[in-house]
């Protein structure tokens, strides 16, 4: 069984989690023209590599961030969101 580490509840079976997609720093619509906005909203980093992703622990209602290798399915670390997460 695959185990994911919830920052609040510790290691839990993957079935207790919901995948929330790639983490994306918040966008400012005032700064982008329409085409860039469309790209930012829809385009993703789909290539192999380590990505930051949103995950949700369903049982406790916790959203958090996981750094995961999308080729090896290896989770490097998980942590709660802080506003600093937005700064790449």
């Amino acid at each position: 069984m695959k185990i994911l580490n919830c920052p609040l509840n510790g290691p839990r079976p993957i079935q207790e989690f919901h995948y929330g997609g790639e983490f994306h720093p918040p966008l400012d619509p005032a700064e982008l023209n329409d085409a860039d906005w469309g790209q930012e909203v829809h385009h993703r980093h789909g290539e192999p590599g380590v990505k930051r992703e949103w995950w949700y622990h369903t049982a406790s209602g916790t959203w958090f961030i996981a750094e995961r290798d999308n080729l090896k399915d290896h989770v490097i670390q998980t942590y709660l969101y802080t506003p600093e997460c937005g700064n790449d």
Partner: peptide, 17 residues
């Protein structure tokens, strides 16, 4: 495998695998 190939030409897309 498309995201491997688009990376070679520096194109971003909405694709995820």
């Amino acid at each position: 495998w498309t995201t491997h190939i688009t990376k070679m030409v520096g194109l971003t897309t909405p694709l995820v695998i």
